[in-house]
Design a protein around this nucleic acid. Sequence first.
DNA 1: CGTGGATTTGATACGGGTCAATGAGGGTGG
DNA 2: CCACCCTCATTGACCCGTATCAAATCCACG
Lengths: 235, 235
Amino acid sequence: MELPCTSDCRLCFEKLCMQKIPVFANLSRPELEKIVRLIVHRSYSKGQVIVPVEAMTDGITIINSGKLKASRYTADGREQILYLFTEGDFFGEHSLFNDQPTPYQIEALTPVSLCHLYRSDFQQLLKNLPDLAWQIIAALSERLASLENFISQQDLDKRILGLLGEFAQKYGSPQEGGLLVQLPLSREGIANYLGIARETLSRKFSQLESDGLIRSIGNRTIQIPDPDLLAQLLD
Amino acid sequence: MELPCTSDCRLCFEKLCMQKIPVFANLSRPELEKIVRLIVHRSYSKGQVIVPVEAMTDGITIINSGKLKASRYTADGREQILYLFTEGDFFGEHSLFNDQPTPYQIEALTPVSLCHLYRSDFQQLLKNLPDLAWQIIAALSERLASLENFISQQDLDKRILGLLGEFAQKYGSPQEGGLLVQLPLSREGIANYLGIARETLSRKFSQLESDGLIRSIGNRTIQIPDPDLLAQLLD
DNA sequence: CGTGGATTTGATACGGGTCAATGAGGGTGG
DNA sequence: CCACCCTCATTGACCCGTATCAAATCCACG
């Protein structure tokens, strides 16, 4: 049974938002209510640049809904996508500690709604909520592990299979005839995520398709007939 | 004037060790003394493997003195060095949160002495010392930034110059005729850090030498006649 | 059903990897 | 102090994989 929104609708809406977010998941109700009052909500539409290159951020931002990409642009204009952020992820932590701009640009891949905490508020929260610190450290450590993994995987085929596996897990839905995966990025996007040329990815995908590992359905969907086989190829 | 070591020599020695470490730098004296009692000291000699591949660590380890390398080994035996750790750096945080082994091996490059905090003690410390959490988050965020940077830099020449710049800054001493840099790794090590073949690095170094950017002195030392030029080439 | 952007395919070039041979440094024992 | 050896580094020849450029084809959307 849902409570109707009364006078302070903002509160009830935002409580909803925060409970979805792992960083705040373990907090007690009074703690949550305290935090809610500090949060600034922001919404963006698909394609909007939320944090431009070299911009300073003034706090930490947690994603309430939607998908974002974080990418760097090299001198010669190539885009390297570093992260795909979704519900529950956060960004902006870098500026908090180093007085340096966030080293990547952040752009909405879908309509997004964000929860923003200002630097001083966040700093205060960290002091009072050791569990929050723990959660943040855990998330960063997880993020580190994924980059470490990326760096030490030279073999392109395995990198691609690894990404497919990740997408399969995050965006796949079981169907007759195999897992149906809604890709979060275009071919160009995937290539930029993997740090390779668009054309190379095409060739690799064609190869995978003729090997029967994937079936391409339009530009944004693939089908994986045998997910176990994929998992197995990843060792 | 130095105080002589009395009955509790361990205390005075260890206090010394902790004050050097940025993570603890801002703590008050009583706080320090509390932590000192939790710390386990360990020493290793050059070449020793401190954390084997896939090993679980049981806490967080802070480096008191010496240099370590953290590396992963790919299926085909290639070594990818991920970090060079020195005085004040820490490792083992990954196991604390994920109940997963640290995703890299750690090996002593020189004789090292380490300060180890057990999981539960560290967890307790985090609760009581918000500043500690802040420091850890800052360090992880710094580490992330350096990996992000590495990943988005495809141009090999710039990657090499970047690493040279880093080494110059960390291990260089000004001399007549240019900055003298004591390399922390062999050529093979540097190649494994950059993720390229030993031979390729040799060729690049030869090129840089004939360009006059560096002068090679034996295997572990280089001279940089014009550090400003190097900085300039990095943009 | 047509149009423009995204994707795929083809041809070619280039950079770094690999293998093999040579060369330099740093210890060790005579 | 020198000769030797072993390890590490350099150089050369060649190969392979990915980038690049150009062209054809596909897909999504109006």
